[in-house]
Computed example of a mutant assay.
Amino acid sequence: MSTLAHTMMTTARSADSGLAGPGELDRYSYADAPAGERAAATRSWDGAEAELGRVGRRGSASRGRGLHGQLVQQLGQMIVSGDLGADRPLVPEEIGQRFEVSRTVVRESLRVLEAKGLVSARPNVGTRVRPVSDWNLLDPDIIEWRAFGPQRDDQRRELGDLRWTIEPLAARLAAGHGREDLQQRLVDMVEIMGHALGQGDMITCARADAEFHALLIQAAGNRMLEHLSGIVSAALQVSGGPATACDRPSEASLALHARIVDALASGDSAGAESAMRQLLVGHHEAERVVPAPREH
């Protein structure tokens, strides 16, 4: 096995906890607040899922980011799921009390959510949840939150439509660029996937598959397409496609990846595009079974 394959398989098995130590907490003095204020803060969150009552329960968006990432994850999930509806006011003090985090953590988390289009902050109005039409639906975190929420079916269909548009075109363009460095890395990914399939290593297989598709878009030599590679990676992570391929070893799927690589090496644009379309049909069939949200 190549050094790259060994490194990737080793890395795939590592885990990030992302949990912060007690020293990071600069908590609100909730216990010292007047009883009326404490009651109001509690009532305002009564509609949220009980499961979301504490930061850091689940979600890949929070891994390795400590309290800040965990709060972004929780609030983002609550907004996307509809627990915090459009125009809902988000009072920093209430959030800090509810999730037992510092003012700094709340402030930075709301800034991240604002950048994603989920909330808006205005003078004399405060921070409020924005309607779906304002969300950055191409943001990888929002893609994942939608994929594991009430909008999961719509999200998966929309992602499939995007992939069908982006990836065959990328394969066609990549065949005309002759990027030997990227083509070698694509060969390495096929090697890793083949070895992982043989070992039943679903994690490594999924990561190699996601890397393969991201590299292919990069090889197209189109900067606007390359900007969309994060969407494809997010789609693979939430779709269950690569995991299903590894869970049910398929020589046909692996062969299609290899056919794409061969077509790129020979400059066969039509062959690369055709193989990619066949591969995406296989992913579509696998995605009919919707995976449960991943626990971390």
Rank of each mutant, 00 (worst) to 15 (best):
S274G: 02
V91L: 15
V232Q: 03
V281C: 00
T204N: 06
V281N: 07
P22G: 06
A252S: 11
E191S: 13
S81D: 15
A235H: 06
G178C: 09
V132D: 09
I142T: 10
T127N: 03
V105M: 10
A270S: 13
E191K: 01
R27T: 02
A15S: 09
I95K: 07
D134N: 12
G69F: 10
L137G: 06
S133P: 00
D16W: 05
L182V: 15
R130W: 01
G271K: 10
L280C: 05
R277F: 03
P22C: 00
A292D: 13
R88W: 12
D141S: 12
L75C: 07
R103S: 15
M189P: 02
V112W: 02
L186C: 04
T11R: 13
D139T: 02
G53A: 09
L118R: 05
G230T: 05
M1N: 04
V238M: 07
P34D: 04
A33Q: 09
S274R: 09
H227G: 15
D26H: 12
H284P: 00
R111L: 14
Q70P: 01
P34R: 04
S62F: 03
P168Y: 03
S133F: 00
R103F: 14
L84C: 03
S253I: 11
K116W: 07
M78Y: 02
G59S: 06
S133E: 15
S17I: 01
D83H: 14
E285R: 07
T42K: 13
V232M: 09
D154I: 06
E49T: 03
D201F: 04
V105C: 15
S253E: 14
L90N: 11
R157V: 11
T127R: 07
A5V: 12
T244Y: 06
D83E: 15
R146M: 09
